[in-house]
């Protein structure tokens, strides 16, 4: 609505955990809702966020995570079943709080026209095929992101 050039936001999403996926998606969708222009560069495990299948099964691990509200001793956290339990707990808190799921937020990014760039090098290194990612993303390298970010008002590595 403002007349001047829209503010530009450049984000790097590098984490593939459930708790790590929320911040870039929430900042991106809110920024476009505030009439800003947004691009997210998905690199390394951050690619899981725009992976057609993996985005539905992101997890939070209690291992080495002293910030869990219900602290689980490290020796217990490595027992099989603890990660699904922690993941289930977190999903349940998020849902009770009325926050959208990761796939819902990715869909909102698509709908609002967030530019999503998947890191070509990571695809090669991790052996991920282009078709495994959502159709709406583009594939590019650091230069593609930096060319966009050079004109950004807000740049965040998440």
């Amino acid at each position: 609505m403002t007349e001047e050039k829209p503010k530009r936001v450049a984000l790097i999403a590098s984490q593939g955990t459930l708790d790590g996926a929320y911040p870039p998606l929430i900042i991106a969708t809110t920024a476009v809702a505030m009439d800003m222009e947004v691009a997210i560069f998905f690199t390394f495990y951050g690619l899981n966020i725009i992976h057609k299948k993996k985005m539905h099964t992101l997890k939070v691990s209690p291992v080495g995570n002293p910030a869990m509200p219900m602290p689980i001793p490290s020796i217990v956290s490595i027992i099989p079943g603890m990660t699904p339990m922690a993941t289930g707990m977190m999903k349940s808190w998020m849902s009770k709080a009325g926050t959208a799921s990761i796939p819902d937020l990715v869909e909102a990014c698509v709908e609002f026209g967030v530019r999503m760039i998947a890191c070509q090098m990571t695809l090669d290194v991790l052996g991920i095929k282009r078709e495994e990612l959502i159709d709406e993303c583009e594939v590019g390298g650091a230069a593609t992101f930096l060319e966009y970010a050079a004109e950004a008002d807000i740049s965040l590595f998440m």
Binding site: V32, A33, G98, L105
Partner: peptide, 13 residues
Amino acid sequence: SGLSCPMPILKTK
């Protein structure tokens, strides 16, 4: 009602 950040903003937009 019942929704938390960022949903009210997205829906308002």
